[in-house]
Computed example of a mutant assay.
Amino acid sequence: MNYTLHQLEIFKKIAEVKSVTKASEQLFLTQPAVSIQLKNFQDQFKLPLFEVVGRKLYITEFGEEIAKAAAKILEEVEAINYKSSLFEGELAGKLKISIVSTAKYAMPYFLSGFIKENKMVDVTMDVTNKMSVIRALENNECDFAMVSTIPKKLKIEQIELMKNKMFFVAGKDYKIPKKNVSLKDLNESIFIFRENGSATRLAMEKYLVKHKIEILRKMELTSNEAVKQAVIAGLGISIMPIIGINDALKTGDIQILKIKDLPLETYWNLIWLRSKNLSNVAKAFQQFIINNKEEIIEEQFRKYNNSSKY
């Protein structure tokens, strides 16, 4: 047999996602290239690794065993690469970060420079809701988390990153009776909420209670992107972080409603457990953020902190 590491990686991914198309997307390869490598890999075995029934791909029992073996081989190769880099004086290892969904618009900018400087560092970034992020932190499943609300029950350390400004927004066809919308004008609208556990939902609920806004109809969605698309479609109004809707504002698909006591302002924070023994990679990332956060915020996020613009 003469299979390559590249073929092992491709088959492992296909076995995970059960689709050549999805595997090609996640590996940033063309579908024909993945199909060719899959065929070449299959040709080296007498037993089938997979079968196609209808339009669905199924991994055979034999294929599952080969996929497990491939995963182990690739892990060993990764370990060899890490050890080689360490002996050469390079930083090598894994960095695990868990972030709330709206932080996905910010965290990549804080990671970019660090990854470019340290090519042997692999990053896993889990994008989920606040409750899941805190659970991952509490269970030691990640090195760092990015949140806008600090968990009170955990003993954590933090680095304050940047402002998180939230506005009431509506679709382009939302009828505004006058220049500034009054709180009473909102009562007939459908309010679009994030799911329970979301910091954005909590901020929105506090604002509505504080100003005694009556909610007659509401909708609940499980991601910031879903809320944005619902607002664009004219399904209702919501309070959303400005960082996640900037493109829609530029195209005019979303409009900011000028309402009393807005925007709401919190801060994004990079947090970690005080008791956690940070790896060398995690310590290096921590120091990178401390040294470079002001420059990153100025270069990438100055437009979001300009209050006069909105």
Rank of each mutant, 00 (worst) to 15 (best):
Y82T: 13
L235K: 05
I134A: 07
K56E: 13
S189L: 01
N187M: 12
I243W: 02
E117C: 04
S223T: 15
E188K: 10
L257K: 09
E220P: 07
N2G: 11
F28D: 15
I245H: 06
A71W: 00
V127K: 02
S307C: 04
S35H: 12
S112F: 12
K283W: 03
S101E: 14
T266M: 06
T222I: 10
Q31V: 15
A33H: 11
T60L: 04
I36D: 02
K250N: 14
L202G: 07
E65C: 01
I239S: 01
R302P: 01
S132G: 07
F114M: 10
E61T: 10
G234T: 07
G63A: 06
F87Q: 14
I289E: 10
D261N: 15
A199E: 13
S308A: 15
A106V: 15
L137P: 07
F87T: 15
K56A: 08
I97C: 03
R217W: 02
L208K: 11
A79C: 02
F114Q: 08
I176E: 15
F144I: 09
K12F: 00
M219K: 15
N292G: 09
Y109I: 10
E88V: 00
K153Y: 08
F193T: 07
K155Q: 11
E205T: 10
K228F: 04
R302W: 05
T266N: 11
E220G: 04
M107N: 05
K153S: 14
E51R: 12
I232F: 01
K152R: 12
K175Y: 12
Q300M: 12
D43L: 06
V169D: 08
A106Y: 07
I271Q: 07
M107D: 08
N305S: 14
F41T: 05
F110H: 02
K303M: 10
K175A: 13
K18F: 09
P263W: 02
A282N: 01
E76G: 02
E88Q: 14
I190T: 15
I115S: 09
I289H: 06
A284L: 06
A33E: 05
V231R: 04
K165W: 01
F168E: 03
N139E: 14
E76K: 03
K119H: 07
S198T: 10
K18E: 14
F62K: 08
N292Y: 09
S112Y: 12
L57C: 02
A199V: 06
N224L: 05
N129G: 14
L278S: 11
L154H: 08
N269L: 00
L186T: 09
D185W: 00
M166C: 11
Y109W: 10
E141W: 02
K309W: 09
K276F: 02
I14F: 05
F285S: 07
N139P: 04
Q286C: 12
T124F: 08
A106W: 02
